[in-house]
């Protein structure tokens, strides 16, 4: 089970103060949290790279964590930012299936997890944009396949992906 919000915040503060053992625990816990966070929205073979990318960002930007605020909304904002960036870079045809949806463990953190989840970003996108981003950028289908499945023209698929990603990047902090 992943540590709760208060524990993670305490470990992060200790990490900012240079406590290596606390920081080691924090990174391990954050890694587990991120794996679960991304699992539904990233193909398995890309998961490790993305988690490591966010962990590196966490390390490089650790000074920007405000000790008076909760830790998970801060980590989730960075995770969403790197994820949108990751989606922009993924253009290759990928056919790997996503893992089954793992239900979020029952805990006091469930409400926070739901509020900062990636799903909350998609809620704010028009369906046509969410659909093609899901097919091309997450499930790895080609533009042509996405066009056939959705009934959109290929150029419309490209436009909707472009507009959708732009909107996603504007929603990183707002969507909850």
């Amino acid at each position: 089970m992943i540590a709760d919000e208060a524990t993670l915040a305490r470990l992060m503060v200790a990490g900012q103060n240079g406590d290596k053992s606390a920081y080691n625990v924090l990174l391990s816990e954050a890694g587990l949290w991120l794996e679960r966070y991304f699992r539904r929205r990233v193909p398995p073979h890309q998961l490790d790279d993305l988690v490591q990318d966010v962990m590196l960002a966490l390390h490089n930007k650790r000074a920007t964590y405000d000790q008076t605020r909760p830790f998970l909304p801060w980590l989730a904002a960075i995770a969403r930012y790197r994820w949108v960036d990751h989606l922009r870079k993924v253009y290759k045809h990928e056919s790997d299936l996503l893992e089954d949806n793992d239900a979020i463990e029952e805990s006091d953190e469930e409400a926070i997890a739901a509020r900062v989840s990636l799903e909350r970003l998609f809620v704010h996108l028009p369906q046509k944009q969410a659909e093609v981003i899901e097919l091309v950028k997450i499930e790895g289908h080609s533009i042509r396949e996405a066009a056939e499945r959705t009934g959109q023209t290929e150029s419309l698929v490209k436009v909707n992906i472009h507009r959708g990603l732009k909107k996603l990047s504007a929603l990183v902090e707002k969507a909850e």
């Binding site: 990174l27 890694g31 650790r62 000074a63 920007t64 964590y65 405000d66």
Partner: peptide, 18 residues
């Protein structure tokens, strides 16, 4: 990766809006 990041850890001044 975690080990190398921990090894590099140095204290930082935490963000403050002030």
């Amino acid at each position: 990766m975690i080990a190398s990041l921990t090894q590099d850890l140095a204290p930082v001044r935490a963000f403050s809006a002030r």
